[in-house]
Nucleic acid binder design. Sequence first.
DNA 1: CTCATGATGACCCTACTA
DNA 2: TAGTAGGGTCATCATGAG
Length: 597
Amino acid sequence: MDKSASGEDSDNIDWNTDDELEIQGDTAFSSSSTLTTRGTEAFASSGEASSSSGVPNSKLVNHFVGMGFPEKQVLKAIEENGEEDTDSILNTLLTYSTLEDSPPKQLCVNSDPISSDYEENLPDDLSDLDGWSENETEDNTSSLSEEHKNLLSLESTGSLSEKEKMLLSLANMGYTVEESSIAMERCGPEASIAELTDFICAAQLSREADIYLPDDDLKPRYNGVSKIKKRKFFEICKKKNDPETETIRLPNPMIGFGVPSMQPENINRSLPDSAIGPPFFYYENVALAPKGVWDTISRFLNDIEPEFVDSKYFCATARKRGYVHNLPVQNRFPLVPLPPLTIQQAFPLSKRWWPQWDMREKLNCIQTAIGSAKLTERIRNALERFDGDPPTSVQKFILDECRKWNLVWVGRNKVAPLEPDEVEMLLGFPKNHTRGGGISRTDRYKSLGNSFQVDTVAYHLSVLKDMFPSGINLLSLFSGIGGAEVALHRLGIKLKNVVSVEKSKVNRDIVRSWWEQTNQTGNLIDFEDVQALDGDRLEEVISYVGGFDLIIGGSPCNNLAGSNRVSRDGLEGKDSSLFYDYFRILDLVKSIMSRSS
DNA sequence: CTCATGATGACCCTACTA
DNA sequence: TAGTAGGGTCATCATGAG
């Protein structure tokens, strides 16, 4: 609707290849091929290298001249970067050549022809539920305490002290400012959010927590917890103070309790009684989180050992994730048809252009951002200086960038980032799952980058098929583009009622659209905000659907993920702390369901 | 053999600009 | 809205000393 550009689906990047072959450097190949050093690092450590004398090391200059760069540029690049950092010199040289050689650019316009207004489609008898969802989430500060609002307004002015920031975090998690203050006093100024929440939980439980007291201001939003839980919380607190508690380590190979092609030597999976369903639950997040994060997650989720799995055993791309769940691990089966397992199988057309020195068989983790056009241009310019294989140092530069940005070969000397529909395929979604309906290309990459790998999750969920032949009721938190829903559907597990909570409207629209296109016969009810899902609302939903069979969700990872250079704050980060809402809601659902059964 | 040390590589990203 | 630049943590591996 808002896009007026109309574009065909044809290859929209068509650099004028022939124009730029004649740039300097035919002399390059012969001289560079005589070099015996592996990579440019050798020069940095060579004894001849004279530092800061102002006269560049002639060997170093010759090296780059030998690669086909003009001497003038080489001298300039060395001057800018110093002699030590040969990688930067190379990078600068490649930038120079890009600037000089850049061909006339064609804009890459990828318009989405499909646009549809989608209508809310809720069961009539749930219209009231929908109503409160919409109303509350429009302005979800309306139900907050005065103290909480004050903190929020202070936050916007950036004038919060450390203590106030902590208070705000706790308040955002649903605790009252008062109980949070008490906890902070008792636990001391150094206490982490996890310690504080543990303290609050323990305090809660120690004062008659099983009794439902809706008007008690000191009560957090989750309530009605069992006595087993009470004991559990004290164990949590005790364990944390034990210095000998060893941290969780990642397995190698990262195959969890097994992947279709491989089984670990010994599977010893024993769940604590308190963890045994119903309901089943399944929690997901990035495996390579800062230290201690998985210990905390595991501690909150019944001390269940996380199952760490790399999706490279299920598809052509890596995706290292941890899954905490109480599902059985025997008799799993994979989705069929099996997806391509290597880059070559996934992109057969690329084989023609794939240089023999690029040995990648699997792609790295698909992220939310893609490589830039300038980079792929630099790579092409670097390659076109040579008739045959480029020197090792250039190969290394290109391979490093290809790995960093998941580039694939799409033409002679041409690499490119993956297209959104290729990402959909790699992650196990139907083609065009995220396309159209008003979502931008950038947002498609973002939503896909934040999603499950469907084949991996489906393998874990496959055990549900025999257990629930008539279908399941699903509570899906942080649904995103519906990875869990797609996985269950592809497994042939009927979705009776799906309550889906997802903040992003474009993502909700994607799931709704998928739901309609797949002729589902169940009900899809969606909410926006996990934090607004309190005990009362869950009771309403549970009494409507008759209890959940599976509670699934992967809470935000952006404060845990390695790619975040700005706010990798751990589980207490602004978004990743929503994990505690997964825990809170899971706990509530369990206690509500155990009360009513 | 164990252990310390350093090198290498991967990473569900955010903030700015035009 | 797309494009661009931007750093640090952690696990693994190789190496060498004890």
